[in-house]
Design a protein around this nucleic acid. Structure first.
Lengths: 199, 199, 199, 199
DNA sequence: TATGAATGAGGGTTCATTCAT
DNA sequence: CATGAATGAACCCTCATTCAT
């Protein structure tokens, strides 16, 4: 029985990987379910055993990837033991930027499809499936911020939107400047915003 | 002879309008060239006399709409005679937000498809076709900013990305807060950023 | 060991019932083997242990149902002790009509699929499986008719076809008249036909 | 312009003919739209220019064919100048049987799909399209019958159902007897029924 | 015996594109 | 210039059937 379950998980994973590969290479209207199944090495019908349609797998994939990035950043933050909200935020942003700089395909995929709703979900649980390894770092961060800053939600929102949208062109096309040039401006902006909300 | 040209322009316009209507109502994979032609009241073949394919008309449409919004804001700024970069920028952002708040379909359309490259084009000429009414307000603004502020390009970039991405969820879904609640935070951020770049 | 046989019969019966339910509710091209198995509460593969394909179970089902109707009518006739072929035939037709009037789904199912060949089989044995309860009433009827009437086979054929096809629209749609209005005409026709064949 | 219309009519006709050919040869679940288009010598997409789906073309085909048979019989009746309802009905039935005896494929197709509703429509107009050649023979027949017989509607209904269902097995499989053997019994039944309804 | 995950052939349907009119 | 009938490639999706467990 566990052999069957293992095989199922394996197929599902193969589909996820194949879909990510294709979605990052081409427009999703140019990616057919046939393509995904073929690349995953499974039958076309097998796709429908695990996903409703192309958008189902895409949404789940975005959530998965976003969750993974944020988790990693959270874990790194926990390990780094940095004091103060301001420095914590900059650490997180820096970490996320570094993850994405090294993986333009991932950046492209995430940026095109990430919405605030998906992001918020990604911060907690992964897509309905409980994540045993979940670290509460970010929850704690927000909890503490409530006591030291006003409107921490909006602070986070502004930072997420600013970073999320501005790094795209910078990393991928060095437009209007390279990410290395952009970083100090971004970090400075984050400091300004954070300090302005200090109680 | 000018009658013929007028008729051509009329058909092209009908196609633009039909396409905008459909693109804002449904996903573009659900919008066919057939649909666009039918809604425009022209034959299917006629579409190909004016546009290469669906993406051709979509890109031109995004540029057109973005250009129109920025032009309007620029004209309003010229008419308002406001001193200082800081207040000018806030005036512009406020104007753009107001335009988009009243037209969610337009917001949705622009946001999904606007990139920094298209935006920069939209600030100057419209998509290859010379715009007789073009006001140099924004060019002047940038020119002057170079003398009073450092890195005005990056300043504008950050503001455009921040505003462009954060108003989407706020206007359409009041997430995480309504646009009226968000505005003061945005304006404050713009002030902080601008002052930080003052020479 | 008989427990095993009982379980088998039970699964087979569950499949028959599920199939009947589905075939009467939807077109059979809309009924999949998957549906039947699911509704029967057995695995998809189990279906193939008992039936060759969808048409196998459908044909056997038609024969079963037709046989059951005729059996019931035959038993009622035996219990009623009615003299004379004419009245016997009318009793049988009346009984069958009553059975079908109260069960439109059954009528629809039978009518669409009943052929003379299946009907004749239904009159004697049930589909290869010996029916222990089989009453010889109808065989006796035919046997006796041979001595009192000419061409009893054709007489029966005409009556079966006439009744079988005319009650369909009447019961289901009251077209061209309701079954209650149609009955006297049918009975009268049966009397005319029977008398005309009297030796 | 008329050239275009002619071509359209020609394609539609080719599709009708191909569909009839295939529907009479195999079960309709074994006949795909692909098959029909291929046999008609047109592209698969062309099918959808003229018909909604497989059932659309099938229904229209049944109505067409039924209409044609009845029209032919009606015209022959008009030409034969036969007095009396009884002989008229027998003439019509005989004519229809002869048409179908010579064309088992047509018989199979019609019988499986003809309902009383379609039959009644077939007696008058063809499927929404006005038939210029329509002869009023059958309408007149019914009109006159109202004065000489009681319940002519039911009389016709019983005859149509009886004939329609009983000739099927007889013509195709000589079951229970050949059509030549069956005919006198049918005609006799028609005479009995008609006389019984004489005023 | 019983299962249901896996398959891939083949169905229905849409639509960008062409081209004769 | 303008048209829209015709096309067939390519999509999505279903499902009968198999077979390892």
């Amino acid at each position: 029985m566990s052999k069957v379950l293992a095989k199922k998980a394996q197929k599902k994973d193969a589909l996820y990987n194949a879909a990510f590969d294709l979605f990052t290479r081409k427009d999703d209207s140019d990616t057919s379910i046939s393509d995904i199944a073929k690349k995953a090495g499974v039958g076309k019908g097998t796709f429908y055993l695990y996903f409703k349609d192309k958008y189902d797998i895409k949404n789940k994939l975005v959530a998965r990837k976003a969750h993974s990035i944020i988790q990693k950043a959270g874990e790194a933050l926990a390990a780094a033991d940095i004091p103060g909200l301001e420095d914590k935020l900059i650490f997180l942003v820096d970490n996320v930027i570094d993850q994405l700089s090294g993986n333009p395909a991932l950046l492209r995929f995430i940026s095109k499809n990430l919405s605030w709703g998906i992001f918020k979900n990604a911060m907690t649980e992964e897509n309905g499936e409980i994540d045993e390894n979940y670290t509460y770092v970010l929850d704690l961060l927000m909890e503490n911020a409530k006591e030291t800053h006003t409107d921490p939600d909006i602070l986070i929102y502004l930072i997420v939107e600013l970073v999320g949208s501005s790094i795209y062109g910078s990393i991928l096309y060095s437009e209007p400047v390279s990410i290395e040039e952009l970083k100090p401006h971004l970090f400075n902006t984050i400091r300004l915003l954070t300090r302005a909300k200090e109680k």
